[in-house]
Design a protein around this nucleic acid. Structure first.
Lengths: 235, 235
DNA sequence: GATTAATTCTTGTATATACAAGGTAAAATA
DNA sequence: TATTTTACCTTGTATATACAAGAATTAATC
């Protein structure tokens, strides 16, 4: 079925913003210009622009136009801030693969309840450590159901990004997630990996990511050392 | 200035849902009914319903109608799950006011950077403890800029809910939030309040809530005992 | 009685039109 | 020249209309 006119225009403008064809601070063409150019009614154009505005891509200003916003907040899936300045510059976390992706059955007593279909196919799992300024701050253990991801284990991650790889290679996009947060103390293994003393308090997070594929979820188990950096969430 | 028709209808329907005049699973009157009843065009009705749908109050189903959703998950913002069953029933947290709302200047070295306007007007603050199954699990210290909220301190919270009070009485709706998470150990004061041993690991969360009022934010500082219950986050 | 088809609700998309109101720049005025 | 006014751009609100498409009920058929 063909997408609606407003959806086509919405997708077009969004991609043009994402690609940088329209930059932060630019004014989009006016509603009337878009209307005549694409041969659709102004009200239809407005619908596309309203969605873009709702999602933070543009800001509409009465009497002026549609202003392209600063780069969309990356869903803040996982970022860090300096401890002393909770409002501070955000740091990029660099990643080191600890155990490369490999297929295996799901662990016993997995932290989220799995569907029969997920149980059946087993999982692909890998472990990574994230560094901020040379300090290991996060241990991440990821799991994904092994549904037609045969090549996943043999090929490296695109730009080192798990999510980007799934999006580009398998058309699986992360839409949202749920998480359960606890405070724990480091055991010896984790203390060694994160280079902290045993009994240091850590943040433990169980995550289930929802994707654009129905009933397909990704899972992560995280341990974070928050002595120097806090875990930043935006939603 | 008078509010727009769609805003009037939006506010009316929202309050009717919040008050329970329309309950979960009910169908709202159809767009044509609302149109004739309120003597406004159907497209204007649709605009009001679209906003309600965006904010999760209703779910529109083509060919059927507008279904009232389960009580707005404003508490999806903060819920708890049993520890052993990370996927388990969610528990309702009961709340005890520790220090009632009172106006005061902002604390020194506040955890988020405040605008000059916020600094100027001072804040209203209050402290609450949340219980799950008689156990104190969360200490919550809330702050809000004192902009025309004179009666806030003298009147009790609606249904004991801070957010509901702001929404119904002041038309301030929480849209999203950002948070910074750390693991800390309990000092003596907090250990006493949460009835844990000193040095128990706790989750500490700084939150800034974004609202429907531009440049108006709410702030919370949380300490959670996650020995028995995890903190649950959705999105 | 059970199944199928037609009707009539519902929301979804799209258009054309009109006027209000904010912002900007050109034109008129002092 | 400096200020004010005007004109023209922009987005915001509102209406009336038309048809498409999904859902549910009713009528017709087997």
């Amino acid at each position: 079925m063909e997408p609606a006119h407003y959806q086509r225009l919405y997708a077009l403008l969004k991609s043009q913003i994402q690609v940088g064809q329209f930059k932060e601070g630019d004014l989009l063409p006016s509603e009337n210009e878009l209307s005549t150019k694409h041969k659709i009614a102004r009200m239809t154009v407005r619908r596309a622009l309203t969605e873009l505005s709702n999602e933070g891509y543009i800001q509409k200003i009465k009497g002026k136009g549609s202003l392209v916003s600063a780069s969309r907040k990356s869903l803040g899936l996982l970022s860090f801030k300096g401890f002393s300045e909770v409002v501070g510059t955000e740091f990029e976390a660099k990643t080191m693969m600890l155990r490369a992706p490999h297929a295996m059955p799901w662990p016993d007593r997995f932290f989220y309840k799995l569907s029969p279909k997920e149980q059946e196919t087993g999982c692909i799992t890998f472990e990574r450590v994230r560094f901020v300024d040379q300090y290991p701050v996060l241990l991440e253990h990821s799991f994904l159901p092994n549904h037609g991801l045969d090549t996943f284990c043999s090929e490296p991650l695109l730009d080192g990004s798990f999510f980007k790889t799934l999006s580009v290679r398998y058309q699986i996009d992360v839409i949202s997630y749920e998480q359960d947060i606890r405070a724990v103390v480091a055991d010896e293994v984790i203390a060694f990996l994160l280079k902290v003393k045993p009994l240091t308090p850590l943040v433990q997070i169980y995550r289930r990511y929802h994707t654009s594929v129905p009933d397909y979820y990704l899972y992560s188990l995280l341990f974070a050392n928050t002595e120097k950096y806090t875990i930043s969430n935006y939603q």
